[in-house]
Design a protein around this nucleic acid. Structure first.
Lengths: 176, 176
DNA sequence: TCCGCTATCTATAAACA
DNA sequence: TTGTTTATAGATAGCGG
């Protein structure tokens, strides 16, 4: 039996594409699992298949989630030092929201908290390249905030004065 | 030449483990790439290797980032409806921070913004199982906020009254 | 460390039940 | 559709340079 070499192109036939997806997906998960075991690393795969119409997350598969299922993304990360400033990256409306939040802060502690939270929105890393399939479901901006040292409140639950230092773990993700 | 079957266990020898990592990683990326092409899906891999001491993101590799490189995670997602409430999942200190933020909001618009931002922190989805390797660099909580419809401010940059509706895309990630 | 090499093992395309 | 088989393409462990 002679089997011709696989042509690396989108499989137009629905059933064979799905079959291929299942087979290769299984193989991929196995490979990731083995890589984890052999090399002592953690791996995580995220894939979106229009056919399955749900987002798959490995190692922990999730159920069909209506919002996330429409979420299709290409992740691209780069160091923050490559970004000139917040305005050069975030959309004008994002800046507006941030400015608005600043304006709303009158109280010192509010100011501290909010400024720390949102001024540093571009704190260390910027991840861009998010691509939403259904802009009606998930448009706008994604902000990922890594709150570093969130225990740093005093016994009354008030923020301590050196919060800036403790919140330097921030991370922001923006998308257009 | 007889080659014995690979034992599926952590490779203790440093150089051979690294070699294996490189080879298998390459193969994995190729497989993901082919799966993308053949089945018309988007894939994204995140892996952390202690040896490389940097987080790798495919398809867009990132440079050695000091914070994220120490970040090692296992992702587990589940639908929010499986979570009883915020308190059952988020740590006490998270709740404290959220409460604190609420307390700090006196102004109505502040209240609106902040409540919408943080009250709904467990809005739709909860992702847990994050595992930080270096707790000194990245401990605490991760909150991912999907700001849905962030254009919804009036011409003066003030939040409109029905902000709750427009911010329902929130997503929170918490970890202990 | 980073190539090549290649014997061997694994994944999987195609066909059929 | 799902499962099984089988030939082949492809991946890779171990080694040498």
């Amino acid at each position: 039996m002679i089997r011709k070499k696989v042509k690396l192109a989108y499989i137009t036939n629905d059933s064979s594409r799905k079959a291929t997806y299942k087979k290769r997906n299984k193989g991929l998960m196995k490979n990731m699992s083995e890589l984890s075991t052999l090399c002592g690393i953690n791996t995580c795969a995220i894939m979106y298949s229009p056919d399955e119409s749900q987002l798959e997350v490995w190692p922990s598969p999730i159920g069909g989630q209506q919002v996330l299922s429409k979420f299709r993304m290409i992740l691209e990360m780069e160091q923050r030092k490559n970004m000139v400033n917040q305005e050069s990256f975030l959309s004008q409306r994002t800046v507006k929201v941030v400015e608005q939040l600043k304006k709303h802060c009158k109280d010192n502690q509010e100011k501290e908290m909010t400024l720390v939270m949102f001024n540093n929105i571009c704190g260390k890393w910027v991840i861009h390249g998010f691509n939403f399939r259904d802009i009606n479901d998930l448009n706008g901006i994604i902000i990922i905030v890594l709150i570093h040292g969130c225990t740093s409140t005093d016994d009354d639950g008030n923020a301590q004065s050196n919060a800036e230092d403790r919140y330097k773990g921030y991370c922001a993700i923006g998308c257009e």
